[in-house]
Design a protein around this nucleic acid. Structure first.
Length: 258
DNA sequence: ATGGCCGAGATCCTCGGA
């Protein structure tokens, strides 16, 4: 089973890149973030033609998440978290894998910059609520995968120049603590679990040649609950899509398990 | 056409991104 996650920065602007990626990588499940469109304008047919069902929580212009999958996703829920700004940031559903039910949680967490504005308090509150919700959920279902754009740089190694980001909403101690809190509920950061010292990024700014200079950061993650950690075979950051024409500023992360 | 990327949507630039 291959589950992938990709912040595509507009599903409509990126449709050819996404279709190309699906053909090459053949994910069973693809979690998308920042689709930047309402459900009525989502390209359902384009994915249907490739053999995928789409489950969409859209929003006009900003945010928006979706799950596209070869198999049926059941109990799809777009009301998992009450969002104080009514933004479309989470879609969840159950995946049946070898008669085991796995809860897939696809998130697009708030950015939080600039830190002196209510954007930052919104991010902190969003994570507070999310952590509370996961705390309850892990009691109900022990098999959980949380994937997506967390907008958190976990450690120094996860950004090209950590000194520059000390007061940034992606790297402030306060926000990194939220990441630790989440993990302490019974999860592992799968990439870091498999690669203790590897410096690898999932995002490179469009500005000032960040990609060419490898000025990146690791802000897209897969957290797996301890109960399913033993089933995970591999995790990979696939940098190819970031190198192509008209790319998203993020690149996909890929999780394989049995 | 829009600041130096980008995208969406509205207006001839702003907001949001990270």
């Amino acid at each position: 089973m291959k589950v992938c996650s990709w912040n595509v920065n507009s599903v409509r602007a990126r449709i050819n890149n996404i279709k190309n990626y699906i053909k090459l990588s053949a994910p069973d499940v693809l979690m998308l973030q920042e689709i930047k469109t309402e459900e009525k304008n989502f390209p359902f047919n384009e994915f249907k033609e490739l053999g995928y069902n789409s489950y969409v929580f859209g929003q006009k212009s900003y945010n928006g998440v979706a799950i596209i999958a070869k198999k049926k996703i059941i109990d799809v829920d777009t009301g998992f978290l009450k969002d104080e700004k009514s933004q479309s940031r989470i879609i969840v559903g159950n995946l049946i894998n070898k008669s085991k039910k796995i809860l897939i949680i696809n998130i697009y967490a708030p950015n939080g910059n600039p830190v002196e504005t209510d954007k930052y308090t919104y991010k902190i509150n969003w994570y507070k609520n999310f952590i509370q919700k996961i705390k309850k959920q892990i009691l109900i279902n022990k098999n959980i995968i949380i994937g997506g754009d967390f907008n958190i740089i976990p450690e120094n190694i996860d950004v090209y120049n950590h000194m520059k980001y000390e007061n940034d909403a992606l790297f402030k101690i306060e926000i990194r603590k939220k990441y630790r809190e989440l993990i302490n509920l019974g999860f592992v950061d799968v990439f870091r679990y498999f690669y203790k010292d590897k410096q690898d990024y999932t995002f490179w700014d469009y500005m000032s040649g960040a990609w060419q200079k490898n000025n990146g950061m690791r802000i897209d993650h897969f957290l797996a609950s301890n109960n399913i950690l033993g089933n995970i075979k591999s995790i990979n950051i696939n940098k190819k899509p970031r190198s192509r024409e008209k790319p998203s500023d993020h690149t996909p992360i890929e999780l394989e398990f049995n």
